[in-house]
Nucleic acid binder design. Structure first.
Length: 896
DNA sequence: GCGGACTGCTTACCT
DNA sequence: ACAGGTAAGCAGTCCGCG
């Protein structure tokens, strides 16, 4: 019998659109006419996964407190529904300790502990000391007995009881007691979030798709030649996780508006004292609903919304909220922008205030998050706030994480600007505003062929985390999670952070920057001037490569074996194990190889179909996000496998590699113009020389050194991290130059852009001389305009600087933007960390003013001219031009 | 009391 | 709440100065 292809699943789901639940959906629609008791959402029984459930994606795992077991959420792509499956294997939470069972049994506080289940003796591999140890597994009836109770869970009680008596010879140890129970469940059962499962005889059973499996084999085989053989099993695991396609994920975006008596105040969701007056639901099938609360004295306004929008009026707020709740139960995925903090939080408390019973509220409120009982809630605010996502997945396209700015950057759409407070809006205006928010929220998950949803799925797979968690947590948690998973898979003890520090010590090099822990990368002093024909070479993911090739990890750096101590890391006193492969090295190394050798090339492979290429591009971006952070986490205290010597060794080897490579290049007679961390800028190298250098790197260093790009020419001053390069197609890379920085006044930026444009047209050294004259002219023009105070809009002179903390928190110094911020605050404008302050330079104390308060007369022209000078000097230096000479001419001219 | 040399703080950037 | 290195500008401090 032929299996359906996964694409067929997905297509089918689109066609049938998940309309299997017509009954409850209609019930929700008919609410208005019902006088009866509320129709509740789907009953839980309807959501229990039946036997032989069609292949379904495991999207979430949690703990059901009332049943005292773990549960999983399975997303069935044909019906587009979520099914729940509760654990029936008897898995229980536990911790590990070095206190023997007999000792534990002697103490009533432990032996009689209410939540205690039983003790076991287990063996674990202790990677820090390369030995197998016997530890006690303390098994509990519920997760709170292990950790998290304010009064003292077992993880606190055990050290408390034994530290006095036991502490003389050996320290009391408790391990693995701070892992969330549902993560523990994922690890122990080897579950793969984001992958396919079915239910067989009541058991949660992985589902393998033959065609995809064959594909996995093919890819692994293809890559097996140049992968170290011990990494092959890792490669295969990753490839399987990445190759299974993503389903179509039916979802609704929700946005609510709340009445507010004070126009400038957003009502506090914890109090929820004001009514919900509007809600919008926009779903992935294009359905759009606006739910409005009827209120006294509200104008109708223009209620002519597009024909695909359904407007529903509710006499009672309770009915309106009930209607929202029904939808929340229906959709497998619910999308919000800041729903954790506001929308769902507000609805939760508002429903409670209105007397909803617990079972009528589908929202499960945590400390800082809001989850849903039968769906997966994705709060896009949390996801887009993630720095790694912001930088590496979206290339810094947005800066501030607001719905408006993210939507502008990614979709080219924006929020509707309101001229009146919510309380004064007509139904029509309110509906339009709210609907627009829900629409762009939805679109943030659907643009680029559901990029964001696919990214979340892939990240859930790699990290082994529920989709809810992966969307809310940072990259260090993702990395920790897949590393913990691997510990459990290999029956390795997960060390405590202090165990790693105690066993491996700290760093031995001195950082260049005060306050940093160890020395980082090398930046080569550039050769100033204009250089034609520059080849930029770089090492493909240098740090992950080093971790792979040099076997770095907490287990291997400064290992316990005498015989490894001669395997030294350059410039340090650290050595690396020669006997065992570090877990980090295996996991990160295999991920790196996959990205470099498979997913990145495939994402650009024109012989593939567009949607396949797109899918591979999602995968390679996800890998990029993780790989980019993989070295950093070693050196981050907040990372649970923090290992400073491992981070230091990575950077030290990196310095060694770039240094050796520069030396080799020079030996080959190539001029190295510049280099930073993992890159080399080579002047006019012949293809043969490039090849030779690359082969040398491969052979001697075991590193892949490739051409990244060619610059027609590049402009360097003496400054590091500061250059301009013109590519063959005339596009320009500007790196680090002040004229491009975010905070610079638009007036200066505009002239900088003109110069950039002039430079982009230069093709030959000859053309350069003409360009120079043009540049001089532009600078003169800019200077004259300033001198004559002809800047037009004063806003164009504003510096835009972001507050790193609230204005009051600057105690050591008061920078200029803070001075301006304080002036605004005096006027009753509240400011917080992350707000951008727009200010101009003025002639009188304190020499700054927020633009809003400044007039053109008080502008300090000389200050701006000195900024002009320093900004353009970065380019003029390289062109052998002098700012003063250029503008001096004009002064002469003016006197003549 | 004031200017110059210096250090420190802060932001924005690069890899 | 991944790392360190660099540029730039301003704030604040110290020291010398008969």
């Amino acid at each position: 019998m032929r299996q359906k292809t996964l694409e067929e699943f997905c297509k089918q789901s689109v066609e049938r659109g998940g309309y299997e639940n017509k009954i409850s959906e209609n019930a929700a629609l008919e609410l208005e006419d019902e006088d009866e008791a509320y129709v509740t959402g789907i009953s839980e029984a309807a959501n229990i996964a039946p036997d032989n459930l069609p292949p379904s994606y495991l999207v979430s795992v949690g703990y059901d407190g009332s049943r005292g077991v773990a549960y999983v959420k399975l997303f069935e792509p044909t019906s587009q529904r979520i099914y729940l499956w509760h654990d029936n294997t008897g898995h229980k939470p536990y911790l590990l300790t070095n206190i023997p069972v007999e000792e534990l049994k002697k103490v009533d506080r432990i032996a009689q502990y209410p939540g205690l289940d039983h003790f076991e003796v287990v063996e674990k591999y202790d990677a820090l000391f390369d030995r197998v140890i016997r530890v006690t597994k303390v098994v509990a009836k519920d997760p709170l007995a292990i950790g998290g109770k304010p009064k003292g869970s077992l993880r606190d009680v055990i050290p408390e009881v034994f530290s006095a008596t036991f502490g003389k010879n050996e320290e009391v140890k408790v391990w693995e007691a701070s892992i969330k129970y549902y993560q523990c469940y994922i690890y122990d059962r080897g579950l793969q979030p984001g992958m396919l499962y079915t239910i067989k005889g009541g058991e949660l059973t992985p589902y393998f798709h033959e065609e995809t499996e064959r594909n996995v084999d093919k890819i692994v085989k293809h890559l097996s030649e140049d992968t170290p053989s011990d990494l092959l099993p890792y490669l295969e695991t990753w490839v399987r996780l990445l190759e299974y396609p993503a389903p179509k994920m039916r979802r609704a975006a929700l946005d609510i508006e709340v009445y507010s008596p004070v126009a400038t105040r957003v009502p506090d969701p914890e109090e929820a004292s004001q009514p919900v007056i509007c809600a919008s639901l926009v779903d992935s099938d294009g359905r759009k609903r606006v739910l409005l609360l009827k209120r006294e004295g509200v104008e109708e306004g223009d209620l002519n919304l597009p024909p695909d929008v359904t407007i529903e009026f509710y006499d009672s707020e309770k009915d309106l909220i009930k209607s929202i709740f029904n939808a929340l139960d229906e959709y497998p995925f619910v999308i919000t922008f800041n729903g954790d903090d506001f929308d769902l939080n507000y609805l939760y408390h508002r429903a409670k205030n209105l007397g909803f019973s617990k079972s009528d509220i589908p929202i499960e409120k945590g400390q800082k998050i809001c989850l849903l009982r039968y769906s997966v809630h994705i709060d896009l605010y949390r996801f887009f706030l993630n720095k790694s996502i912001q930088i590496y997945a979206f290339g810094q396209k947005y800066r501030n994480v607001t719905l408006d700015e993210v939507a502008r950057a990614l979709l080219g759409k924006s929020k509707i600007t309101l001229t009146k407070p919510f309380s004064e809006l007509s139904y029509g205006d309110l509906a339009r505003y709210c609907l627009n928010d829900a629409k762009i929220t939805m679109e943030l998950t659907s643009y680029n062929n559901d990029l964001v949803m696919k990214l979340l799925l892939i990240l859930a797979r790699i990290s082994r985390m529920p989709m809810e968690d992966v969307s809310r947590q940072g990259v260090s948690k993702w990395i920790r999670s897949f590393m913990y998973y691997e510990h459990r898979r290999r029956n390795m003890l997960i060390p405590n952070s202090e165990d790693i520090i105690a066993a491996r010590g700290t760093t031995v090099t001195k950082a260049i920057i005060k306050g940093k822990k160890y020395m980082g990368a090398i930046v080569v002093k550039p050769v100033p001037g204009v250089h034609f024909n520059i080849a930029v070479m770089d090492f493909q993911s240098l740090y992950p490569s080093i971790i792979k090739v040099y076997n770095l990890g907490y287990q291997t750096v400064r290992c316990v074996h005498e015989e490894c101590k001669d395997n030294l890391v350059p410039e340090t006193t650290h050595w690396v194990c020669k006997k065992h492969r570090a877990l980090e090295s295996a996991l990160i190394g295999s991920l790196r190889d996959l990205r470099v050798k498979w997913y990145k090339p495939k994402s650009k492979d024109k012989s593939l179909q567009a949607d396949q290429r797109e899918w591979y591009n999602v995968i390679q971006s996800a890998l990029k996000v993780i790989l980019n952070a993989s070295y950093g986490v070693f050196g981050a205290e907040i990372f649970d496998l923090y290992c400073p010597p491992a981070a230091e060794a990575t950077a030290a080897i990196g310095r060694n590699i770039i240094t050796l490579t520069i030396r080799k290049a020079r030996e080959l007679g190539i001029d190295v113009i510049y280099g930073d961390t993992d890159s080399l800028f080579l002047k006019n190298p012949s293809p043969e020389k490039i090849k030779e250098l690359s082969e040398w790197a491969e052979k001697v260093l075991g590193m892949e050194l490739d051409i990244d790009k060619y610059y027609r020419y590049a402009v360097f001053s003496y400054r590091k991290k500061n250059y301009l390069g013109v590519l063959d197609d005339g596009s320009v890379d500007v790196k680090g130059l002040t004229g491009k920085k975010r905070h610079m006044p638009l007036f200066i930026k505009r002239y900088f852009d003109i110069i950039e444009d002039i430079l982009s047209r230069v093709k030959t050294p000859g053309e350069f001389e003409i360009a120079k004259k043009d540049i001089e002219g532009i600078i003169r023009e800019c200077y004259t305009k300033l001198k004559n105070r002809e800047w037009g809009d004063i806003n164009d002179l504003a510096f835009e600087v972001v507050l790193g903390k609230p204005p009051e928190a600057y105690t050591k110094t008061t920078p200029q933007h803070v001075k301006a911020a304080l002036m605004l605050q005096v006027r009753g404008i509240e400011l917080k960390a992350g707000d951008t302050i727009r200010f101009v330079k003025t002639i009188r104390e304190p020499f700054v003013k927020p633009v809003q308060l400044a007039s053109s007369k008080e502008i300090d022209v000389d200050k701006y001219i000195s900024y002009l000078r320093s900004t353009f000097d970065q380019i003029l230096d390289a062109l052998n031009l002098e700012f003063d000479e250029i503008v001096g001419l004009t002064r002469l001219e003016r006197f003549m």
